[in-house]
């Protein structure tokens, strides 16, 4: 109940360094625990998914956005409202597919990877894969099945970080995707 009162413009301030270091500690622990980077990527995606299915509620309550009519609107909301609200950045939306079911989010800077340098033996690690899971889980809760994946990453030497989002299908109400 107290959440309702705090909703609106006030976002609780937390140190971004603490957030970045926490995420970093999480990823390195996973790297230690799992034998290869693919497993780590999967795990990050799973964790992100669990965050996303819950975060969507907070998001909808705080942002007061209405139902999106098409995928384009969804893209706008994700980039301009959601990313801004939770990570303080506004990625740009580009590379729409002709059918309007795929787009890219371009992140000039990614707060998750401040100070991070990938060592050579982790070349196939998708460090920020948590974000993909978050997007997937959140959208599933609003009846959209999507695929999100990183196609460019500043950590791997690319100029920008690019997440490719693809709309798969609308989810019917009586077929819950279920948690993994």
């Amino acid at each position: 109940m107290s959440r309702q009162a705090n909703r609106g413009t006030e976002s609780k301030k937390m140190s971004s360094e603490l957030f970045t270091l926490t995420y970093g500690a999480l990823v390195t622990q996973l790297c230690k625990d799992y034998e290869n980077d693919e497993d780590v990527n999967k795990q990050l995606d799973k964790m992100g998914y669990n965050i996303g299915v819950r975060l969507i509620e907070d998001f909808l309550a705080r942002s007061n956005v209405g139902r999106c009519h098409d995928f384009r609107e969804t893209a706008d909301v994700i980039a301009k409202v959601a990313f801004k609200m939770y990570l303080g950045i506004t990625p740009s939306i580009t590379n729409w597919s002709p059918a309007g079911d795929e787009f890219s989010l371009i992140l000039e800077n990614n707060p998750l990877v401040d100070f991070v340098e990938l060592p050579d033996n982790h070349s196939s690690l998708i460090y920020s894969n948590l974000l993909c899971g978050v997007l997937r889980g959140a959208l599933e809760m609003v009846q959209m099945a999507v695929e999100a994946k990183f196609v460019q990453d500043t950590l791997k030497g690319d100029g920008v970080t690019e997440i490719r989002m693809r709309f798969i299908r609308r989810i019917e109400d009586n077929l819950p995707a279920g948690e993994e």
Partner: peptide, 15 residues
């Protein structure tokens, strides 16, 4: 000193 560093390390040990 090496043992100390190894204990703190997050490096994955290959199987």
């Amino acid at each position: 000193q090496e043992a100390l560093q190894a204990a703190r390390s997050f490096k994955r040990r290959p199987k």
